[in-house]
Simulated scan of single mutants.
Amino acid sequence: MNKTSRIFVAGHRGLVGSAIVRRLRADDFSQLLLRSSAELDLRNQGAVEQFFDAERPEAVFLAAARVGGIHANDTYPADFIRDNLQIQTNVIDAARRFGTTKLLFLGSSCIYPKHAPQPMPESCLLTGPLEPTNEWYAIAKIAGVKMCQAYRRQYQFNAVAAMPTNLYGPGDNFNLQNSHVLPALIRKFHEAKLRGDAEVVVWGTGTPRREFLHVDDLADACLFLMQHYEGEQPVNIGWGEDVTIQELAGLIQEAVGFAGKLRFDTSKPDGTPRKLLDVSVLKAQGWAPRIGLRDGIAATYRWFLEHQGDYRSS
């Protein structure tokens, strides 16, 4: 992949895709192929084939997906498994058939078993039951990893898979009904501050541990993998450290400046007890993240304040 390669970033308007576009443009990649979902429905096999036939991308970052938090996964299981299977199947297959040189598939740390060893190595994939609240999404992503491996074995197609941890940053979804925990808490604390509320209610017990990675660090890792990694096994991308949900809430409370109290609603689900990735494989190859959680949260809150009119925060 060089500066004039034709590069398709699938899902370029989402959290991950937009970060990848920022990273590529910062490095002067000049031939980016970008299509919104209105312009190209990746669930439509015929439309995807026509796009690849016409544009012939040399490299593909497959960041398009239907994503959401516990509530969204639990409420729309059919949508999550159907849409993600359709998107990744259509894109991976068309990329192979229409001459793409290399493809990077973005999975998720939720593909690993609910009670996987901590930190979770890539080798623990398919060694135990999944977390029930997001198994539909996880199964689709596992299928994507296996499709990359199968196409590599049968067709020698250079498809690699990356498994990011929990992500956050500019362009995130702040909708309280279907967002992930970090952006949801930013909005909850912000609105509670504006109303002068005495407390903010956080789902669950506050004890689960989660790892968080700024999406700009992820984008940097994706470019690194496209340029340096050729293996069949998926590669974890994370920070290598985690915090409890209670500690996360405290960091967000501090960044927002909310003066009230925290209350944990223990009637709500916690999800997986802990999700920490073993990032030794990527670290050994020479990559490490740079944006710490405290600084990343503060920057994300500033972005939220500047984009409250954006449809993703409605």
Results as ranks from 00 to 15, higher is better:
Leu276Trp: 01
Ile297Cys: 13
Asn90Met: 04
Lys193Arg: 14
Ala64Val: 03
Leu185Glu: 04
Arg35Ser: 11
Ile92Ser: 04
Phe264Asp: 03
Cys148Asp: 02
Leu62Ile: 06
Ser123Arg: 12
Ala159Asp: 01
Ser18Cys: 11
Gln227Asp: 07
Thr127Asn: 08
Ser267Lys: 11
Ala26Phe: 09
Val256Phe: 00
Asn2Gly: 00
Phe52Met: 03
Ala255Met: 10
Gly206Trp: 07
Asp74Gln: 15
Arg96Ile: 01
Thr133Gln: 11
Ile139Cys: 03
Tyr311Pro: 15
Gly68Phe: 03
Tyr168Leu: 09
Ala140Val: 06
Ala255Glu: 03
Phe51Glu: 08
Phe174Ala: 15
Gln31Ser: 13
Ala140Gln: 11
Pro121Met: 12
Pro208Tyr: 06
Ser123Asp: 13
Tyr76Phe: 14
Ala249Thr: 10
Glu247Arg: 14
Leu126Pro: 03
Lys261Asn: 08
Asp74Val: 08
Asp41Phe: 03
Val21His: 12
Ile81Cys: 05
Ser18Met: 13
Ala65Phe: 04
Glu247Ala: 14
Phe98Val: 00
Val145Ser: 02
Val160Tyr: 04
Thr272Glu: 10
Val243Tyr: 12
Phe105Asp: 11
Gly128Trp: 01
Met1Val: 03
Leu194His: 10
Leu34Lys: 05
Leu34Gln: 02
Ala259Phe: 01
Ala78Tyr: 06
Asp53Ser: 14
Pro57Phe: 05
Asp27Arg: 15
Asp197Ile: 03
Val21Cys: 14
Thr300Pro: 09
Cys124Trp: 08
Ala63Leu: 01
Ser280Cys: 01
Pro117Ser: 04
Leu34Asn: 04
Asn236Met: 08
Ala249Met: 01
Val67Asp: 08
Ala150Asn: 04
Arg23Tyr: 06
Asp265Tyr: 00
Ile142Trp: 02
Gln149Trp: 08
Glu241Asn: 05
Asp242Glu: 13
Leu218Ser: 06
Arg152Lys: 13
Ala140Ile: 07
Tyr155Arg: 14
Thr100Val: 14
Lys114Val: 10
Asp197Tyr: 04
Gly231His: 08
Arg153Gln: 14
Gly250Gln: 09
Val181Gly: 00
Ile70Gly: 04
Thr205His: 10
Glu211Asp: 11
Arg153Trp: 04
Ala249Pro: 07
Arg263Met: 00
Asn73Trp: 09
Ala159Gly: 06
Leu218Asp: 04
Val9Lys: 05
Tyr311Ala: 15
Leu194Cys: 03
Asn178Cys: 12
His228Pro: 02
Ile20Phe: 02
Ala288Ile: 06
Ile237Leu: 13
Ala72Pro: 08
Asp265Pro: 01
Pro117Ile: 12
Leu106Thr: 15
